[in-house]
């Protein structure tokens, strides 16, 4: 597949013999393991990560044996408490990486994140270098409480950074960057990509800077701005649209806070037509901010209104026909893009 490296968010490196092709979830594990080996202040904590279990998604499988129980800290079901504990560790110079078992449970830790961790540096100048890994997103028939995309809450919170990698290479590079960042970073990893997506991942140190989007596909007719698993739906849609003579820019935001304003405005000014896509429900989602940014700073370049496609404004439903109706996919993206192209 010719566009492999570009499609998967990594360009400029050799793919070699394929030994560095790995799943998205393996890339997360690799980043964690390498950072823990590099820096003794990095630790992981969360539910069911201790002993040999390795967490609900096995991201930390084998970690307890290598790093011991204090660096692979198994926690009770107490998201609010253990996220507060992570803040205290971070204040004292450790770099905890908190695993939410599911992103849906991050609301249980909300105060510890948005009230304590996010405000501390502004209030009294103490850095809180911590990462919260949040396994998010749906399409897996997992129901209202194992399918959510709650990134907008955190994008709205001053003091946090928010990232959402869409490729194995970015999964490694953004997690590495998040761990090395001196601020609280919420890292939304995409469950539907965990074992369904493989890609080339650079060996050894690989850092993707927070705040930089990636142009995953280049085209002149319209722009699709997206992130997370929806990137792959957008790329599939763009492939179909190309057959119909509609060439798309597909911009993978990668970081949601800070947003790469320059990249968003560049694609809007290039094509004049923008469709923003995310799996999170649409109202007051990240897409609203992207659309506002374009309206504000690229209005004169626009040839059509900025369109948004998101999840429906409902809880995430369970049953396949309902979840499919809820969720943006390549066909819905293509349909809305065609309409936009004709505008």
């Amino acid at each position: 597949m010719a566009g492999h490296a570009e499609t998967f968010g990594f360009s400029g490196g050799p793919e070699g013999d394929g030994s560095r092709v790995m799943t998205y979830v393996a890339a997360i594990s690799e980043a964690l393991r390498e950072e823990m080996r590099r820096d003794p202040s990095v630790l992981v904590m969360g539910e069911d990560i201790g002993n040999d279990f390795g967490g609900a998604f096995k991201v930390t499988k084998g970690f307890a044996a290598e790093f011991g129980p204090l660096r692979v800290l198994n926690t009770p079901l107490a998201e609010l408490g253990f996220t507060g504990v992570a803040s205290g560790m971070a204040l004292m110079g450790l770099r905890p990486v908190v695993e939410m078992q599911f992103a849906d449970f991050i609301s249980s830790a909300f105060d510890s994140i948005v009230q304590y961790a996010a405000t501390t540096h502004y209030r009294w100048g103490a850095a809180v270098p911590m990462v919260i890994r949040a396994p998010s997103d749906g399409g897996l028939r997992s129901g209202p409480f194992h399918s959510q995309n709650p990134e907008a809450w955190f994008v709205h919170t001053p003091g946090l950074k928010v990232v959402a990698p869409a490729t194995p290479a970015d999964a490694k590079g953004l997690l590495t960057a998040a761990i090395r960042d001196d601020n609280p970073v919420i890292y939304f990893e995409s469950k539907p990509l965990y074992r369904n997506l493989k890609g080339y991942v650079p060996e050894g140190e690989h850092v993707v800077p927070i705040g930089k989007a990636h142009l995953a596909r280049s085209g002149k007719n319209l722009s699709i701005v997206t992130y997370g698993a929806e990137l792959h739906q957008a790329l599939a849609a763009a492939e179909r649209l190309a057959d119909e003579g509609i060439e798309c820019d597909v911009l993978d935001l990668r970081s949601l806070k800070p947003l790469d304003e320059e990249a968003v405005l560049a694609t809007a000014r290039k094509t004049g037509k923008v469709l923003v896509v995310h799996a999170a429900n649409r109202l007051a989602g990240v897409g609203a901010e992207v659309a506002a940014m374009i309206a504000d700073r690229a209005f004169e370049w626009l040839d059509a209104p900025v369109r948004r496609l998101g999840g429906l404004d409902t809880p995430v439903p369970f049953s396949p026909p309902l979840e499919d109706a809820y969720r943006p996919d390549a066909a819905k993206i293509a349909a809305m893009a065609r309409e936009l192209a004709r505008y």
């Binding site: 204090l70 660096r71 408490g81 507060g84 205290g88 004292m92 905890p96 105060d111 304590y116």
Partner: peptide
């Protein structure tokens, strides 16, 4: 708060210092 004096600052949600302080304690164990 002033870490040079070993003081952790609090927020109005008073229970929130409680786990944060535990985190500091765990850094000592660590």
């Amino acid at each position: 708060g002033d870490l040079s004096l070993g003081i952790i600052g609090f927020i109005s949600h008073l229970p929130h210092s409680v786990p944060v302080a535990l985190g500091a304690a765990m850094s000592f164990r660590y």
